[in-house]
Amino acid sequence: MNFRAIKVIYKYEMLRAWETLLQSFISPVISTSLYFVVFGSAIGSRIQQVEGVPYGAFIVPGLMMLVLLTQSVSNASFGIFFPKFTGTIYEIMSAPLSFFEILLGYVGAAATKSLIIGLIILVTAGFFVPLQIAHPVWMTMFLVLTCISFSLLGFIIGLWADNFEKLQLIPMLVITPMVFLGGSFYSVDMLPPVWQTVTLFNPVVYLISGFRWSFFEVSDVSVGLSLAMVLVFLGICLLIVWWMFKTGYRLKQ
């Protein structure tokens, strides 16, 4: 293993986030605070409790997932797309690096950034609503697995995209709607029966449900099923990345 190379890619990517501190870390905090003001205070004051949890607290896991998913995808996709766009990817491609090492550097950094943002949001949420975490280990596991899985998805998007439009296409048209419709701000039980069935086809539902269970022990689907779905998603992403690297898709002509 070329550990030094993994380290320099990881450090480079983390440094990029640090140099754009405002965009990377402060802007998610501001947007989360706004969500709390709008959903937690303005709307939440009219909704007393959801499944026995105050609405302000109920939305915290969903809100964290919303930011984690979008940040993981955008960090990882941009991380690999930018060197492709500027042409500096030649240096990575001609270095003594396996594709797995490239993946560890880029996805590792993107997942770390998302994890930091997730924790910042958790702390920020603590200023607005009283929080409890019933199962911290499960919460950490869901947090880490989500960061890695969606960073992998972002990496796939970054490899696939050959222009900025494509880079934004899936995050904007697929991921954001899936998160909003995946129970970030409501319980699936609150939907009409038909939509309850339809929504079960949305993989994000399982993610948010499991994550919310680790906080409040309330969930839309069983936690075992949630974990299985996250692992299946992780497996699918790994398979796609493995195929991309094996064939040199969009990297090697």
């Binding site: 030094r4 042409g87 240096e91």
Partner: peptide
């Protein structure tokens, strides 16, 4: 094909690191 916001010395350290040195 170079980045824009890095320093000269840092970009050289990055390149050397990629080759495991």
């Amino acid at each position: 094909t170079l980045g824009a916001f890095e320093k000269v010395s840092n970009t050289l350290r990055f390149s050397r690191g990629l080759f495991g040195k």
